[in-house]
Write a protein that binds this DNA or RNA. Structure first.
Lengths: 213, 213
DNA sequence: CAAAACATTGACCGACCTGGTCAGTAGTGG
DNA sequence: CCACTACTGACCAGGTCGGTCAATGTTTTG
């Protein structure tokens, strides 16, 4: 990566990054178009290559940057003080929400990258980071958690899975609801309150079924 | 569609259909390549157009055929006699399994079609069928179900959602496990038994938490 | 202020892929 | 021998791709 890129005014710099993140997130490595990235970023095509050399280097730059952000701003900031499973869950969700607002392009690019299979053949670097972050994630919802609150007549691992899948399912349904109303629409404050309430209802329901009564 | 196509020996006919289903499933309408379809099917490119006229007609042929199969062989065959929610769920899963084995290309093409947003701009036909099948699906897990078995102190709709999302989550994890072991590997009989048992454990767990005790 | 260094551009390149066409070949039945 | 159907792949124009580079600002430097 050319140093000139770092000396750019912030506005231009992040416009380029945003264009690149979005294009790669949407189309993956192979089908992403450097033409479109340059066009969306409002710079000449040559400039893009002047900054990054070639497509692959640009992609790798995005990967390492977004991984660093996720690591420093997200994983390292998780609060391990909360010992209640659902409180821990909530604090993680909140943190993710915050980081996602600060670095929306980076985080959504990254989660797409981790979820979808590779496009590239030279994916050694990605795979490594993938596994590393998986290890950290395992700890996040187990370390220093007070599991004595859970019913002891049910298999713990399966219960935790059902909780995870249940909340995932709810989140995905919300996403789908948001998307089907057109991409540009944002939820009103009332709606947000409603869904937040509904989310809490699910949490309560899960607590009622899986915690000791 | 040219009648010559129907007169083809079954082997060739289904080779062509398989190639087409797979290509469209993998890449969607726009990015699917008629060149590749012809090549995979082992026929000349001209032949493909001789049979189907153009890409769009081919695509629509696949859509209507697969919808018909799903309707006749799947939706129409659902057994509404079982009144137990989990039994109904199981019989649907079994049926889907059977149909998926008989028409693997059609069904996986179709589910991809229903899950991912359109590629096409002329999606009126698809959208219509999409909504129609959604209506049928609503009934499938509610009509003639004995809900008195469920605990009455928990909100029914949310409970049913948690069950659905939980089993979905388990299914997806199995899928992922299968994929990460390489696409060609098939589970051994022992493994299948193990996972079937695990699946039943989840069912039991759900029954224990959500049925009256 | 001129020269050197850096920054930026978009026209252009060859490679590749697309959906679709069509002249030509082969086989069949009358 | 002719008419007909089935079938083929070379070929077409249109488009996109990643990448290059001569030309043209713009800054920095001596």
């Amino acid at each position: 990566m050319n140093e000139a890129f770092n000396k750019l005014p912030d506005e231009k710099r992040s416009a380029i990054l945003k264009a690149a993140y979005n294009e790669f997130e949407e189309h993956g490595f192979k089908r992403a178009s450097t033409n479109k990235i340059a066009a969306k970023a409002g710079i000449g095509k040559g400039t893009l290559f002047y900054y990054f050399g070639n497509k692959k280097k640009l992609y790798q730059y995005l990967i390492t940057t977004s991984f660093n952000i996720a690591y420093d701003e997200y994983l390292m900031q998780i609060n391990f003080d909360k010992t209640d499973y659902f409180d821990r869950l909530e604090s993680i969700t909140d943190l993710k929400q915050k980081v996602s607002n600060l670095y929306p392009n980076e985080l959504s690019f990254l989660s797409k990258l981790l979820l979808t299979p590779d496009d590239t053949e030279w994916s050694d670097v990605i795979q490594e980071k993938r596994e590393e972050s998986e290890k950290v994630w395992e700890k996040v919802l187990t370390e220093n958690i007070d599991f004595s609150k859970f019913r002891e007549d049910l298999p713990r691992e399966k219960v935790l899975n059902l909780i995870k899948w249940g909340l995932e399912g709810y989140r995905k349904e919300l996403e789908q609801k948001a998307n089907s109303l057109g991409n540009s629409t944002v939820f009103s404050e009332e709606e947000i309150k409603y869904y937040y309430q509904e989310y809490n209802d699910y949490i309560d329901l899960l607590k009622r079924t899986y915690y000791k009564s």
